[in-house]
Nucleic acid binder design. Structure first.
Lengths: 139, 139
DNA sequence: TATATTCTGCAAAAATGTTGCAATAATGAT
DNA sequence: ATCATTATTGCAACATTTTTGCAGAATATA
């Protein structure tokens, strides 16, 4: 039968696999981009808001999701093993978001942590800039 | 007379130097660590909540402050030229926060942006890990 | 399928942000 | 210094977002 990593991870952590949790997980998986809490709630209209918050907190605690901030707003997206580890660079004019995967960056972060005697468990990198198009447009 | 970079920057941007703005600026300068919006409001009890929000938005727009996120909460702190450019690594057990300054990291971020045809204007790097003490403690 | 336990919806409250407008404070010129 | 102009603030009401307790529903286990 089909492998179900989502269910497996929940079970490994002794929490139930429920339809609510799967619905929210699917919403994140389908969107395939970081979503605000409110957006997630909208995508699962049958689920109570309180449950959405409780579920997102759970996912975060289990490491299923990553939360980044743009401006002042937190956005959540799936983390490994559901999505390859990556970061983002966003254009501040047009809003385009590009995913970044860069081993050198990961290495440098590890080294920095080590130099401060920290064992790295998580990290967030969000870049903001102006994309090529927008630089040409008005500049 | 004493130089007043804060006032200078506000004037350069054609906004008034008011006691409210200075109070909030002072709160950020004195705290010397990233603060939640609510914490800032608490530190200037005489200032109306609405003014706090409007001021923080202004500071952000003028580039006086930087906003990072930990967990789901946005935190604001002073940026250059009031504080040297830096990032943070926080211990997820004891909460200790250490500031990071690393030229290699800055270079790598610039290169990554360039490779994607972006001109970098801003970036956030937040590391989370376990510090030496906490690793020894229980582990 | 029965039982124990965990989850969810509901409803109410707390916390967080936002808005328009009149009163106040800051700025620049005299 | 004072005045006129303009920007800023407080107030108060509102909107939105998040949190909480608890009873009923769904899930896991034997």
């Amino acid at each position: 039968m089909k492998p179900d990593r989502f269910a497996d991870i929940l079970k490994q952590n002794d929490v139930s696999v429920t339809t609510v949790r799967r619905a929210i997980f699917d919403a994140l998986a389908t969107a395939d981009k970081p979503l605000k809490n409110g957006e997630i709630a909208t995508l699962v209209p049958t689920v109570d808001r309180a449950s959405v918050y409780r579920t997102l907190e759970l996912f975060d605690r289990l490491g299923l999701t990553t939360t980044i901030v743009r401006g002042w707003t937190p956005f959540t997206e799936l983390a490994e093993p559901f999505k390859a580890h990556h970061h983002h660079i966003a254009c501040e004019r047009c809003g385009t978001v590009v995913e970044i995967e860069n081993d050198t960056l990961e290495d440098v972060l590890g080294l920095i942590a080590g130099r401060h005697d920290f064992e790295l468990t998580k990290h967030v990198v969000e870049l903001t800039g102006v994309c090529k198009n927008c630089r040409v447009a008005i500049s």
